[in-house]
Simulated scan of single mutants.
Amino acid sequence: MDRRSALATLALGALAAACSGRGGTDDDGGRETRVEIIRYGDDPSQRAELTRPSGSSKGVVVVIHGGFWRDQYDLSLGRPLATSLVAEGWTAYNVEYRRVGNGGGWPETFDDVAAAIDRLAEVDGVDTAKVVTLGHSAGGHLAVWAAGRARLTDERWTSPAVPVTAAVSQAGVLDLAAAIAADLGSGAVQRFMGGTVDDRYAEADPAALVPLGVPVRCVHGTDDTTVPLSQSTGYVERATAAGADATLTEVEGDHFVVIDPASRAWAQTLEILDAL
């Protein structure tokens, strides 16, 4: 079984828990954690899974899955992380969005991520004082983009109802122009954006939005051959040169180690979240 298949098996286990309405109980056998489906639009992909911890919450972590923005990958990839986050005392918000092949791309995917996060303002009992976006691969791109909405010029995105207070990129695609040059995902960026670099990229590319006014933490495997480590090193160098609070944690492993809840890389990510 390859790593992607193993992670899919973990996701199926998390899905079974979600379908039963159960995510686990606290250490004292207290109330069960339950998954709430939050709709933020009419499209079937415009939904998110909200899971609250059994006790007080450290804050909200918005989980944004990867897959080069393609529709064959979905939020099931984020379920194992959401389960772990809730066990650690976080409120997990696992977001689905329209992707390339089911109505996504520019600008629809961006609309969805913004709307999904803003929808939290209307959910009873959710404290949005601390909202951290956490994304893997293409989801890392969207996580950092969402944290930089105040840097945009398009008015539909620049006044978030729920501001992001920090972002964690897990092997994220953080420089779209460089990703095109390296042909990451065999043309994935061009299909996502509907063309090569033009004026729209100033609104879409995290590398073009530095410096952000919130911390950005990058976690990246040193053996990643899907999204090279240079995507994170280059972003952090550019961001810090512009005066931003951005760091890189290099971890042992490949592209998927960062979303394996049994890995040391994930344990380090939990430590990073606690420090934000």
Rank of each mutant, 00 (worst) to 15 (best):
V258R: 03
G41C: 08
P80W: 06
P228N: 14
F110D: 05
G172L: 03
A171C: 10
R52M: 12
V164I: 13
A150E: 13
G135R: 11
A87H: 13
D28M: 14
G23V: 11
Q231H: 15
G234P: 00
S263Q: 11
I64R: 05
R98E: 08
V144P: 04
D2A: 13
A244Y: 02
F68S: 12
V144Q: 10
F68K: 07
V63H: 00
R52G: 03
D71S: 15
E49V: 04
L270F: 00
R98D: 09
R39L: 09
I272C: 03
T233S: 15
G187S: 07
D154W: 06
V258K: 03
L273N: 08
W69N: 01
E36T: 14
G135L: 06
L77M: 15
R22T: 10
T128E: 06
V251T: 07
G103F: 00
A241V: 11
V123C: 10
V86T: 14
L176T: 02
D112G: 07
R238F: 02
Q72R: 15
V173S: 03
M193P: 01
F110V: 10
K58A: 09
A181M: 03
T25R: 15
G148N: 11
R4P: 08
V113R: 01
E88R: 15
S76E: 10
T233M: 12
T133Y: 07
D260M: 10
A121K: 12
I180S: 06
G140D: 07
A239L: 09
V219S: 00
G243Y: 07
T109H: 02
L176C: 02
R4S: 14
E108S: 14
V227N: 00
D224M: 06
D42S: 15
G59N: 08
G140E: 09
L81A: 04
I117M: 03
Q190S: 12
R39Q: 08
P163A: 00
T33L: 13
V210Q: 01
A17T: 10
V197F: 09
T153F: 01
Y235H: 10
R217H: 13
E155I: 07
A11I: 04
L134N: 05
E252Q: 14
A16E: 15
T165I: 08
R34M: 07
T153W: 02
D175F: 03
V164D: 07
A82F: 02
D127G: 05
S263W: 02
T158V: 11
A138V: 04
A181K: 13
E122M: 07
R151A: 09
D2K: 08
G105I: 09
G55I: 04
I64F: 01
L176R: 00
A167R: 06
Y93A: 02
S45P: 04
E36P: 01
Q72D: 14
E32M: 11
F192K: 00
S230H: 05
V60I: 14
A244P: 06
T233N: 09
D224A: 04
F68H: 13
Y93Q: 08
S20A: 15
V60Y: 11
S230A: 15
G195C: 11
N102S: 13
L212A: 01
G24Q: 10
L10H: 09
E96D: 10
R200C: 04
A179F: 08
T225I: 15
A244F: 01
V100R: 04
